[in-house]
């Protein structure tokens, strides 16, 4: 099937700004699903609120556009009641790690088979460019006109610390590896977190002296490096990308099934 078979064409052109990275992530997600040859009816996309979460409206799967930060709570409900479905939760950085931070760490701790795709654009774009938990120290936002004094979360380490069994980071520039990482994350039996650095030229870019989406992609190209590369040793400021953790752990729905079987025996 072609990409157009996975989208709701009547809603296009989409609402995202020119050059917004979220469209690239949506394309990557579609191509990953296409490669895996999943049935459209077997896929559930659950999103919260924000620019990123508009993705739900455009994808032609079972989609749930839920409340801010609670995408994973709804996704957990869907997965527990229908474990045979593939549940994917695309979320923004604020959705995943600010208002929905607790849902994320507990979903990770339980290792429930959901793929969380964090579309990290370092800002709250929809509401006008407020700083988010991933806006860096010294960076600018509408609510940080004299520069941000908060330190950002390291999403990868936070997810690893919370116990996620698959953790990866990539960018919208590295689109071919992004597709492969999303494929692996979907195939992984357990909770997977994929942080995708995504450009917001309208708010983050404009406030932080990036002239265009192209400049932001060049930044991703020049300031990231594969995990464990030589460049990282020479320049510790580079951001590592790739798969950080991929391990087998008991999955939540499987464990829950065991409990149901045990309890159904009576006694």
């Amino acid at each position: 099937m072609a990409v157009k078979d996975y989208i709701r064409e009547k809603f296009f052109p989409h609402i995202w700004c020119p050059g917004c990275g979220h469209g690239i992530i949506m394309g990557g997600l579609i191509r990953a699903i296409e490669t895996l040859q999943k049935e459209k009816n077997d896929i559930v996309i659950v999103s919260g609120i924000g620019c990123s979460s508009r993705i739900c409206g455009y994808l032609d799967f079972h989609t749930l556009h839920t409340i801010h930060g609670r995408a994973l709570a709804f996704a957990t409900g869907v997965k527990l009641s229908r474990p045979e479905l593939t549940v994917i939760a695309p979320m923004g950085d604020g959705d995943a790690f600010a208002i929905g931070g607790n849902h994320l760490i507990h979903a990770a701790r339980r290792n429930i088979d959901i793929t969380a795709i964090i579309m990290n654009n370092n800002i709250y774009g929809m509401t006008g460019g407020q700083y988010s938990p991933s806006t860096g120290y010294g960076e600018f936002a509408t609510t940080a006109p004299y520069s941000n004094i908060d330190h950002p979360f390291d999403f990868v380490n936070l997810a690893i610390g919370a116990g996620a069994s698959f953790v990866a980071r990539t960018t919208t520039y590295h689109v071919t590896s992004m597709i492969k990482i999303i494929e692996k994350a979907i195939m992984h039996h357990g909770f997977s977190v994929v942080e995708i650095m995504s450009q917001c030229p309208t708010y983050f870019g404009r406030k932080n002296k990036f002239a265009s989406a192209v400049e932001m992609l060049k930044y991703y190209r020049d300031h990231t490096t594969p995990i464990g590369s030589k460049d990282k040793k020479n320049n510790p400021d580079l951001i590592e990308r790739g798969i950080f953790i991929e391990k087998e752990m008991p999955e939540y729905c499987d464990e829950y099934d065991k409990i149901i079987k045990m309890a159904s025996k009576g006694e």
């Binding site: 990409v3 157009k4 052109p13 989409h14 020119p18 469209g23 394309g27 992609l217």
Partner: peptide
């Protein structure tokens, strides 16, 4: 295919 994959508007096929 890089233009198709990187197009944020899904406008290239």
């Amino acid at each position: 295919m890089l233009c198709e994959l990187r197009c944020p508007d899904l406008a290239i096929e």
